[in-house]
Simulated scan of single mutants.
Amino acid sequence: MPYALFSNDAKLSKAYPTAADVWKIARKSGLVVDVVSGQDNTGPRPVLDHDYEIRPCQLEPHEDPARNKADAERDAQTELQLAS
């Protein structure tokens, strides 16, 4: 089942093969913050900022989650090369 980033009922991202893939894209986009709970001694945990959520989604016509993931990885690699 593909996953995407949502705000309320609006789909904000492309579909990706797993929720972990969407977390990775959200973190890279600056949408993930680390919070510390006063009741939890395990340290900070990542949460999505601004009430975003990652959940299963319906694919758009002709959308390929595997291709979306490959495109995102290629874009990230290109950004690394340009930064060095």
Results as ranks from 00 to 15, higher is better:
residue 73 E to K: 11
residue 52 Y to M: 09
residue 61 P to I: 00
residue 76 A to T: 01
residue 61 P to N: 11
residue 66 A to H: 11
residue 77 Q to C: 02
residue 75 D to S: 05
residue 36 V to R: 11
residue 75 D to W: 00
residue 43 G to R: 01
residue 64 D to S: 10
residue 26 A to K: 07
residue 59 L to M: 09
residue 76 A to R: 06
residue 4 A to C: 02
residue 56 P to K: 12
residue 59 L to S: 07
residue 55 R to D: 05
residue 43 G to K: 02
residue 12 L to V: 11
residue 10 A to M: 08
residue 34 D to S: 14
residue 6 F to W: 07
residue 65 P to Q: 04
residue 17 P to C: 06
residue 63 E to T: 00
residue 77 Q to M: 09
residue 1 M to A: 15
residue 25 I to N: 04
residue 79 E to A: 07
residue 31 L to Y: 15
residue 26 A to S: 13
residue 49 D to W: 15
residue 11 K to L: 06
residue 82 L to Q: 15
residue 37 S to Y: 13
residue 40 D to Q: 00
residue 28 K to S: 13
residue 32 V to K: 11
residue 63 E to D: 03
residue 20 A to V: 00
residue 9 D to G: 11
residue 7 S to P: 00
residue 37 S to D: 15
residue 83 A to V: 02
residue 82 L to T: 10
residue 83 A to S: 12
residue 82 L to G: 03
residue 23 W to C: 03
residue 34 D to F: 09
residue 33 V to Q: 14
residue 17 P to H: 04
residue 56 P to S: 15
residue 48 L to E: 10
residue 8 N to S: 07
residue 35 V to P: 03
residue 45 R to Q: 07
residue 38 G to W: 04
residue 63 E to K: 01
residue 59 L to I: 12
residue 39 Q to I: 09
residue 29 S to C: 13
residue 14 K to S: 08
residue 4 A to I: 06
residue 46 P to W: 07
residue 45 R to C: 00
residue 15 A to H: 09
residue 52 Y to L: 15
residue 71 D to I: 13
residue 31 L to N: 14
residue 30 G to S: 12
residue 54 I to N: 05
residue 21 D to N: 13
residue 55 R to N: 04
residue 46 P to L: 04
residue 8 N to M: 12
residue 63 E to A: 01
residue 26 A to F: 10
residue 33 V to K: 14
residue 53 E to A: 13
residue 52 Y to P: 06
residue 83 A to N: 04
residue 55 R to T: 11
residue 5 L to W: 05
residue 41 N to H: 04
residue 48 L to C: 06
residue 63 E to W: 03
residue 34 D to I: 13
residue 33 V to D: 14
residue 56 P to A: 14
residue 6 F to D: 06
residue 30 G to K: 11
residue 9 D to Y: 09
residue 80 L to Q: 13
residue 65 P to R: 08
residue 77 Q to P: 00
residue 54 I to V: 15
residue 19 A to Q: 08
residue 48 L to W: 10
residue 55 R to Y: 09
residue 30 G to E: 09
residue 65 P to W: 11
residue 56 P to L: 09
residue 25 I to G: 00
residue 5 L to K: 03
residue 9 D to F: 08
residue 44 P to T: 01
residue 10 A to K: 10
residue 64 D to T: 05
residue 63 E to M: 02
residue 19 A to E: 13
residue 30 G to I: 12
residue 72 A to K: 01
residue 18 T to E: 09
residue 8 N to F: 14
residue 63 E to S: 04
residue 68 N to V: 02
residue 57 C to T: 15
residue 54 I to G: 07
